[in-house]
Amino acid sequence: MLDILKSPIVTFQEFILLAGRATANIVRRPFYGSDVILQMDTIGVGSLPITILIGFFSGAVMALQMSRALSQYGATGQVGQITAITLVRELGPVLTALLVAGRNASGIASELGSMKVTEQIDAMRALGTDPIKKLVTPRLIATCFTLPLLTIVADFIGIIGGYLVAVPLLALTTTSQYWNNAWRSLEYNDITQGLFKPLVFAYIIALVGCLYGIRTTGGTQGVGRATTQAVVVASVWIFVCTFLITRIFVNI
C-alpha cells in the first residue's frame, strides 16, 4: 500500500522543490532575458490564434445553450450576464489553460526530455550553467506572464461570440442590453478569480512540463512517455485547482 503512494508523493515533493527553486531564481543573477522573450513568443504568441478560436466558440455555445434555458423563465435578456460570468470565472481560464497545457506542457516536456537524453542538460551543468535557471525559470516567467493575457483575450472574444449568437442570430436581446448586462454583472470577485486562476495554472503547466522533461529517462521512448504524462498530469491538476480556488472565492 505504501509503495503505491511513494511514487506520487516523491513526484509531488520534486514538484514543490522545483517550484521553490525556479521561483527563487526569478530574482537571482544571471538573468536570461532573451530566453524569456523567446518562450513568451512560443507560448503566448504561438497560442493566440487557437485561444481566439476556442474563446469565440465557447462563448457562442454558452449563449446558444442558455437561450433555451432562459426562455423557459422568460429571462432571455440575462444572456449577456450569464455568458460573461461563466466565461470570466470558469470557462475562459480553464479552457485556455487546458489548451496551453496540451500545446506547451507537452512541448516543454519533449524539448527538455530530448535535451536530457542527449546529455545536453548534463553538458549545461558541466559548463557551469544551472539548468533550472536557464531552462525552467524562463519558461515559468513566460507562462505566468502570457497565460493571464491569453485568458483575457479568450474571455473577451467569448463574450463577442455570445453576442453574435444572442443578438444577430437568435435576437434574444438587444445589443445595448447584452453589453450592459455583461459589463455590469462582473464584480471584482469575478475578475480576481478569473485572473488568479491562470496564474496558478501557469505554474502547473510550466513546472509539470519542466519536471517531467528533466526527469526523462530511457531514450526517445522516455521522451514520448514524459510528454504524455506531462499533459495528463497538468490537465488533471488544472481541474483540481480550479475546484479548490472556486471553493475559496465562493465564500468571499
Binding site: 530530448s114 535535451m115 542527449t118 546529455e119 545536453q120 548534463d122 553538458a123 549545461m124 551543468r125 558541466a126 559548463l127 557551469g128 544551472d130
Partner: peptide, 23 residues
C-alpha cells in the same frame, strides 16, 4: 553545493557521448 561545483567544473573539459552540443 551545486554552486561550488560550477567553480570546480570550470577547470574540467568534458566531451559527452554524442557530443552534448546544444541543439
Amino acid at each position: 553545493t551545486e554552486n561550488q561545483w560550477y567553480e570546480v567544473r570550470s577547470h574540467i573539459g568534458v566531451l559527452f557521448q554524442e557530443g552534448g552540443l546544444f541543439d
